[in-house]
Structures are given as structure tokens and as C-alpha cells.
């Protein structure tokens, strides 16, 4: 129970009765900004009568208490929480693993690309013969030195 706007309206019988009807006879439940004015008014005869009337319903509401949570409920909630925490940790590891794998794969691809671009083209020592080539190399007319 607390906080409200800075300036509440001036307190009169009508406003006091309206607040008592809404919030009951205990001023601690009233809007904070109006408590001081209400407190002064509550000491008047009219204020006391209104507060008394509201307090009778408050007293009845007080008698309706509910039991505190049992141990079983408490433990069940903690067990479920444990499962959620474990699952979240697993998910985190899974995403971390996936992230690392992704980084590794990206590195490998980048490395391969770099090697491909940077490495100079080396002429092959041997070339593969295709269907038109012969084992004797150039098949053009031979020039015999002696003929010249």
C-alpha cells in the first residue's frame, strides 16, 4: 500500500465517505495523497461514524484467511523449475556448439578460398594426353637439317 499522485482533492464528507466505501476503514489502504487530509477528517464525529461503519466489513474480510502453501506444492514448483533450468542450459550448450561449429566451418571455407586465390598457378610437370595428341608431341612436318 503506498504511492499516489502528489495533490489529492480537498477532503469533505462526500469524498471521505466515497473513500471509505471503496478502501474500507483503514487509512493505510487509502490513496497516499489523500491520507493526511483524511486523517484529520477522521477525527471528526462524522468521520468516526463513517470509519466505524466501513471497519465492520473490514473485520469480516479479515476473518477470511487462506492456508499457506504446503511443502508438496513448494517442492513440485522447484522440481519444475529445475527441469526448466537444465533444459535452458542444454539449449545454451547446443547453441554454443552450433555457433562454434559454424565459426569453424566459416574459417575452413575462408581458408580454402584464400589458398585458392593466393597460390600462384604452377604449370603442370606433365599434361594429360587427349585424343588428338600423340606420344611423339608435335606431329607437324619435321625439318631435317641436312636438307637445308
Amino acid at each position: 500500500m503506498a504511492e499516489d499522485i502528489e495533490d489529492g482533492p480537498a477532503m469533505d464528507v462526500k469524498r471521505f465517505a466515497a473513500l471509505a466505501e471503496a478502501y474500507g476503514g483503514d487509512l493505510r489502504r487509502w490513496p497516499q495523497a489523500e491520507r493526511q487530509a483524511a486523517s484529520a477528517f477522521a477525527s471528526s464525529e462524522t468521520g468516526q461514524a463513517i470509519s466505524r461503519k466501513a471497519a465492520t466489513l473490514d473485520a469480516l474480510l479479515d476473518r477470511y484467511s487462506v492456508p499457506h502453501p504446503g511443502r508438496a506444492l513448494h517442492d513440485t514448483i522447484l522440481r519444475v523449475a529445475d527441469r526448466h533450468i537444465v533444459r535452458r542450459r542444454r539449449q545454451r550448450f547446443w547453441w554454443l556448439g552450433l555457433g562454434l561449429a559454424g565459426i569453424g566451418l566459416a574459417g575452413a571455407i575462408a581458408g580454402l578460398a584464400l589458398v585458392t586465390v593466393v597460390t600462384p598457378e604452377v604449370p603442370p610437370d606433365h599434361y594429360v594426353l587427349d585424343a588428338n595428341a600423340t606420344a611423339f608431341g608435335d606431329a607437324g612436318p619435321e625439318t631435317i637439317e641436312e636438307d637445308l
Partner: peptide, 25 residues
């Protein structure tokens, strides 16, 4: 009354104005 919320907190929880809260109360 039971959860001991201020009028502003209760109105925010119910997504209504403080005047509407007082009317409901």
C-alpha cells in the same frame, strides 16, 4: 485488501484507471 497493493498498482494490474478501480471497490 488482501494483496495490499496500492490503488495505482492495483489499477495498473487490472489495466484500468484509478477512478474505475474505486468504482469496482
Amino acid at each position: 485488501y488482501y494483496q495490499e497493493m496500492s490503488n495505482i498498482e492495483a489499477a495498473a494490474t487490472l489495466e484500468i484507471s484509478v477512478d474505475a478501480l474505486e468504482s469496482l471497490l
